[in-house]
Amino acid sequence: MTMNSKIGRKEFWQSYRRSCSLDASWNYERMQNLAFAYMMIPIIRAVCRTKEEIGRALKRHLEFFSTTPHICTLLVGIMGAMEEANQNDGEFEESSINAVKASLMGPMAGIGDSLIWGTLRVIAAGIAISFSMNGSVAGPVLFFAIINIPCFALRYFCLKQGLQVGTNFLLSMSKTSIMQRLTEGTSILGLMVIGSMVSSMIYFELTMQVGSGDFAQPLQDYFNEIMPGILPLAAFGAMYYLLDRKFKTTTLLAWVFALSVIGKYFGVL
């Protein structure tokens, strides 16, 4: 929101509110196109003058779009700044608007998906599940708070930055190594949490007894003496290997169900 901008407080908050619906009309043809146009409308309405310009702007923003919903406002801001520049500057190349959008949404989705769906959500779930397993209300409440407090703050920050600096924002971000370090740091954090959950949240025991008479001992105990949690780790390793071999998750689900029931029937598990 620069001094002379037509995009004021009202348009800012309208776009912010509308950006919350980015994934709500998702489709296989153009993905988030309807929602993207929907959240650009307050800005287009403020900036464009003639019916023709409005039409062109609307069509532009009904094109294919796909990025992480929680940070999409960065692009809304950049697009808003560009739409306004397009009106004020006769020399402005109109096609560059969609070119910028198309070139930025991919990298943004890459960072956003692994940051929010891949890391933040996993940490929130990991922490919350340990409460929920004991039946505590703190589980769902913590899950909701850990995800949404940072996400709504991020949504605000992204829109503000996007409008203020337009396309320069991502350029300045990529000059410093912030993005790269953020990705590395969150990957480390995410993997440590996944490692911890593999140990504490996969339940896999072998109840079969080995030995005889007074020396009979569950097979499980032998494995635990080698390393606690070795069976969950093995189960994780097997799944990782099978996914790597391009097995479908639904196939794996079905096999786990089937083998568990069969294993129980023969008393191995």
């Binding site: 891949g118 990957s187 993997l191 998750t249």
Partner: peptide, 30 residues
């Protein structure tokens, strides 16, 4: 057992040779 599938899907997204020690560290700490 089913969570093993979910964890494997997640790990596949981010895991590489350089980051493997951090996964193991998390596992061993717990």
């Amino acid at each position: 057992l089913l969570p093993a599938i979910g964890f494997a899907m997640l790990a596949k997204m981010i895991m590489n040779k350089k980051l493997l020690p951090f996964f193991l560290l998390g596992f061993l700490l717990t």
